[in-house]
Design a binder for these strands. Sequence first.
DNA 1: TCTGAAATCAGTAATTGTTACTGATTTCAT
DNA 2: ATGAAATCAGTAACAATTACTGATTTCAGA
Lengths: 134, 134
Amino acid sequence: MATLKHSRQRDLIKDFLMTRKDHPTADVVYMNVRQQDPNISLGTVYRNLTLLAEIGEIQRLRVGDGVDHFDADTSPHYHFVCSECGCVMDLKMDSIEGITEIAGANFDGYIAGHITYFYGVCGDCARLKASQNA
Amino acid sequence: MATLKHSRQRDLIKDFLMTRKDHPTADVVYMNVRQQDPNISLGTVYRNLTLLAEIGEIQRLRVGDGVDHFDADTSPHYHFVCSECGCVMDLKMDSIEGITEIAGANFDGYIAGHITYFYGVCGDCARLKASQNA
DNA sequence: TCTGAAATCAGTAATTGTTACTGATTTCAT
DNA sequence: ATGAAATCAGTAACAATTACTGATTTCAGA
């Protein structure tokens, strides 16, 4: 594997991601990091997000909306996706790791893990809908 | 909503999907349906797969490999994705519906459901790797 | 059974998210 | 300081999907 050298751009990307709790997409990262470094290119953003995800410093989230989201919090936790506004947020919940064993019980093969995300309506959208119906 | 009219192409697509247990992609559907109707277009396949998924007659699976898979079995069940060969298969397992409640316990908003898929190495790939290492 | 409006079609162009390629620049061990 | 390797910016390529076109099919009502 190639040695990883330091780069200002990669730092900017990671630093930006650490300030955010909303799991931005590559494009959002690009637009924001560009404010600190107007010359950074979209390709660099994609390359470094991929690289950071590969070495485990960030997490790539595929929540099924066709766009990858990124999360600087690599601790095991689950995500919620709002069907109304598309926002992605962390869930504070007890472990559900047990489902991997449940799945593997009658399976011919090896189950390494699972990917789970929850969907529904976030608090803000729920209140908005409630006030509109009033 | 627009009235849904009958179409031979849509029937072909659904009928083909019902014969398959391997959750084919739009492209695979296209290649197969074309054998019965050589003039069908890829756009028609995409449009009808989307349409059928919207009205709930089939299920769209986003397993994170960048390609949508489709399943004529709309009953609740879980899927496994092989990290080696990329195949997608059904899992026979006990219900894990309880995780939705676990997730909703401390959440400000409404959780409608969850999407989970498991990954690892399928039986065939596991045996193949074992024989190669021998 | 006609008729015509709406749905659907085939074909293709456009869009989107992402990855690969280019030659220039930066990093850092020596 | 130096030079090889990593990284960069910019852009082209790519695959999957969606949108648009004018032609064809469907089917409710006359």
